[in-house]
Write a protein that binds this DNA or RNA. Structure first.
Lengths: 332, 332
DNA sequence: ACTGCAGATGTTAGCGCCATCAACCTTTTG
DNA sequence: CAAAAGGTTGATGGCGCTAACATCTGCAGT
């Protein structure tokens, strides 16, 4: 409920004995005004507890310091890392993120974006490169600056800052082959909704099969990703997949959960079985063993995307593929 | 950059051959209009890709489906759990959260809230009960509905949905005493900025000392909370605090990190040393041992707060203390 | 035939702000 | 010392939308 007695520039103007226009100028520090007037206005505004009404100024044509951010989930720490990069950058530029979570649904994403666009944000950050046609059309028409993050394998609407999922998957497969891990299991989550994990796995499989490897077990749970899920999936996997010598997990949470299963059940890692995840999240450093994983510059990705959408350089939209890096596991 | 060629109701009206007011009515489904007009307007809106301008309608006096949410950090999963509750609830009510992160700074929080208020949100969710006077004044004057979450020991601005940190701390101390853990270490993070952790520890200490216990080691790192920090703090603690038989950690991340240290160094838990955390985050279930902790209804807290601020019941603001529950550790 | 009233549409005003222009006043400059 | 330049303030209009009121039609009730 917006109180109707919230003071406006008119009220401040009356209290300071000037016109409303002068108050506007003083508060924005734009144009000419005397020191005397400046002080009177500042005092009046402080006394009344005046708060600027952005709705009105944006409507009038000012830039809206609002950036819409749509992420697939908050359950995976991956996105809180990206978010941190976005948030830190936008804060320093006096802009504010508005978040939405799509739960890996393209239609939910479209609804969310349409909703956000109704606030006339000056920018938008989306996850992944796959969106509904309706979303793309709405975004383009809105004139908001858009950046797509996370992925680099595909065609962005405009700018993109992501990593190549295919390269990451293929790199990991080559590592497996080099280490002689040929009988491999794959564990995933979110059903088929996590499209980036799917791309990764597809490239991983192709590369592995092109070598002498084989996927002897594959299980993509419908549940959202979590350490607990990873632990459970690993338990079933080790029971069913005889002769399996390595597990590739869709992400670090699953891999860490798998590691917990191994520790609890005294399965030696990587002696009995090798484990690999994806993202190189900070918490991996605290585990009893450093798991093999692919480092992705999550924070940096957030920073770049935020900078791009916040500033309005007229350059043509960059499509940057950030580098991933294989992190080899070891006992600590 | 908001494109000036974004279609307005006027454009839709022209395309549909009706007045702009009629478009407004049709799109809101309010008042009278014929089926024929309804269809023409809907078609025109779809063809032009019309997106409603909320700025204008809120300015005109409509309720703003925006809720400001200020959290101390995203680095601790605690807040993403709360956030999930808030987000799910608001989504189902067609409202949108706008997030801000204060990094445990009261002045940053005030800046953030003032910023948010400039968008005329209809509600606000804040963390904790301690805020600057300026913030409280601004919030009250804004007329937005406010809910404060997390804490129950203090006086809220209006509504509050939190847990008693003091009760939780004291309960844990009683558990320690009952188990005969008398030589206790305490590990914390965020310097003195995490006021709720401080309240908890204070009550814990008082209760412990009132029994036969003592705090033989205390270390509150300035770093943000993480598993890695917990692991490092535990390492130093076990080295320095001779005869220590239990560690109370400010939260589950620290406690899990401490557990990782113990596993790596073959320190038996709880044989050699007992560990306790706070919050009962879901990932604890994946660890090789269930750590002792205090369960807090994080998601539920988010749900209740979101419901309160989203709906505009005229009841006087509820001040609810949600129940915490001690979770006793065990090996899995 | 005349009221009455509901259905269907349009007109007007104004939310709070800022770009633009206009007015006036003070310096500076040739 | 007039003219130009610059400092200081105010009046006006309009961004896109919706509440309130106005208008006009058709048709039921008497």
């Amino acid at each position: 409920m917006v109180n109707s007695d919230r003071p406006t520039m008119h009220d401040v103007a009356a209290a300071a004995g000037v016109s409303q226009m002068t108050v506007s100028r003083v508060l924005r520090g734009d144009g000419y005004f005397s020191q005397d007037v400046k002080k009177r206005v500042a005092d009046a505004a402080a006394k009344l507890g005046y708060i600027h009404n952005r709705l009105a100024s944006v409507q009038r044509g000012m830039k809206n310091p609002m950036i819409g951010v749509v992420l697939p989930t908050l359950k995976n720490h991956v996105f809180t890392d990206v978010l941190a990069g976005i948030n830190d950058t936008l804060s320093s530029l006096n802009m504010r993120p508005v978040f939405g979570v799509s739960e890996y649904s393209a239609t939910a994403e479209e609804t969310l974006v349409r909703d956000m666009l109704s606030w006339q944000p000056s920018g938008l950050i989306l996850s992944g490169l796959e969106h509904t046609e309706g979303l793309k059309r709405a975004v383009v028409q809105s004139g908001a600056r858009v950046a797509e993050i996370m992925d680099a394998d595909g065609t962005p609407i405009s700018a993109s800052f992501g990593v190549s999922q295919e390269t990451a998957g293929a790199d990991m497969a080559r590592h497996f082959l080099a280490r002689g891990h040929l009988r491999v299991a794959y564990l995933g989550s979110q059903g088929g909704d996590d499209l980036r994990a799917a791309k990764r796995f597809s490239a991983f499989r192709d590369t592995l099969l092109a070598g002498d490897g084989e996927i002897i077990y594959e299980r993509i749970s419908k549940a959202p990703s979590s350490m607990t899920l990873g632990r459970d999936l690993a338990a079933t996997c080790l029971q069913k997949a005889e002769g399996c010598d390595a597990i590739y997990c869709a992400n670090d949470d699953l891999a860490a959960g798998a590691l917990m299963h191994c520790i609890t059940n005294e399965v030696s890692v990587p002696g009995d079985i090798a484990l690999a995840g994806f993202n190189d999240l900070p918490f991996l450093a605290a585990l009893p063993q450093q798991i093999t994983t692919t480092h992705t510059p999550l924070y940096e990705m957030g920073v770049r995307a935020a900078k791009y959408v916040a500033l309005d350089s007229p350059d043509d939209p960059p499509k940057e593929a950030l580098k991933t890096r294989l992190v080899i596991g070891q006992t600590t």
